[in-house]
């Protein structure tokens, strides 16, 4: 349930919303519609926000949707739901897990994206899809790769590119390269998957 609120400051508007929905102020989710400054001789600000209270994840609805999706795809997969603070993890396992991880977890990421599109905004928590520790392993692999590249660049000074990384993977690489004070990294490309170039400063 979204509702519009307006007030002089964001904080006041959030307080109003919290009162209306009867939840604490930190739990309110909002998006800013307009924030403008009026000039009537003196400075007066006005802000409009769209606020809603997260309803908490409906596990039944979520799992029945995933079930029907897996069914219609004809895959043999099982999954478990674990709820954490502000996120829900869907852990897949079963015979066809290799399909999920095919091409760097293409299908896993697609399902995660769709679930977030469908359920994420309303329930106010992020949905993570996990399978056979894929994300953790991927992070470790990437950090190992980044360290290796860093060493080789220090040795021979040649720049290295790492291709087709999604935002999460890019973050991992950038953070590691940042630790090397004599190296720098930059993302290039304008699609969802970008290429990272690592070189000497």
């Amino acid at each position: 349930m979204k509702k519009e609120f307006s007030s002089a400051s964001l904080k006041e508007a959030l307080l109003k919303a919290a009162e209306e929905f009867n939840v604490s102020e930190e739990d309110i989710r909002y998006e800013i519609i307009t924030a403008k400054t009026k000039y009537f001789g003196f400075k007066q600000r006005e802000i409009h926000i769209n606020a809603w209270a997260p309803e908490g994840i409906d596990e039944k609805e979520l799992s029945s949707f995933i079930n029907s999706m897996i069914d219609q795809m004809g895959l043999s997969l099982e999954f478990t739901l674990t709820e954490g603070k502000g996120f829900v993890t869907v852990n897949f396992s079963g015979e066809d897990y290799k399909l999920l991880l095919y091409k760097n977890g293409n299908l896993l990421n697609a399902i995660q994206y769709l679930l977030n599109r469908l359920f994420g905004e309303v329930v106010g928590s992020k949905i993570y899809c996990e399978c056979e520790n894929f994300r953790k392993t991927r992070e470790q692999d990437l950090s190992r790769l980044a360290h290796q590249h860093a060493k080789s660049i220090r040795k021979n000074g040649k720049r290295v590119t790492v291709r087709d990384l999604n935002p999460f993977e890019r973050r991992v690489v950038h953070m590691i390269i940042n630790k090397y004070s004599d190296l720098e990294s930059a993302s290039a490309g304008d699609s969802f998957l970008k290429t990272i170039t690592i070189k000497k400063k």
């Binding site: 999706m69 219609q72 795809m73 004809g74 895959l75 066809d96 399909l99 999920l100 095919y102 293409n106 299908l107 990421n109 697609a110 399902i111 994206y113 769709l114 599109r117 699609s191 969802f192």
Partner: peptide
């Protein structure tokens, strides 16, 4: 379709995976 075709791509990925099985 989604932002930069992301939703459409996700649906196609799911179809491709189901297709591999069949």
């Amino acid at each position: 379709i989604g932002k930069q075709g992301r939703t459409a791509r996700a649906i196609r990925t799911i179809l491709a995976a189901a297709g591999m099985k069949q």
